[in-house]
């Protein structure tokens, strides 16, 4: 318990950022039908892979349409 309290100032922002990225990616995935690369299932799964998944989605998978 003590240990967790000690690391709370790190954990809270970390969780907020990672969750934020995942949620942003998921919202975008579900509000768009087409992707430049890959398909919906792939991107939904990948967006839970922390940091790299959402980043890859926005750089490679996201489509303008």
């Amino acid at each position: 318990m003590e240990i967790i309290r000690q690391y709370l100032p790190f954990l809270i922002p970390l969780i907020v950022i990672e969750l934020g990225l995942t949620v942003a990616a998921l919202i975008h995935i579900f509000t768009h039908k087409t992707y430049r690369k890959g398909n919906r299932v792939l991107w939904v799964v990948l967006s839970f892979v922390q940091i790299i998944g959402p980043v890859l989605y926005f750089v490679i998978g996201r489509s303008d349409e």
């Binding site: 934020g20 975008h28 980043v55 926005f58």
Partner: peptide, 9 residues
């Protein structure tokens, strides 16, 4: 295109 968001995050 979310580039700013990604880099800041």
């Amino acid at each position: 295109t979310y580039k700013l968001l990604i880099l800041l995050a």
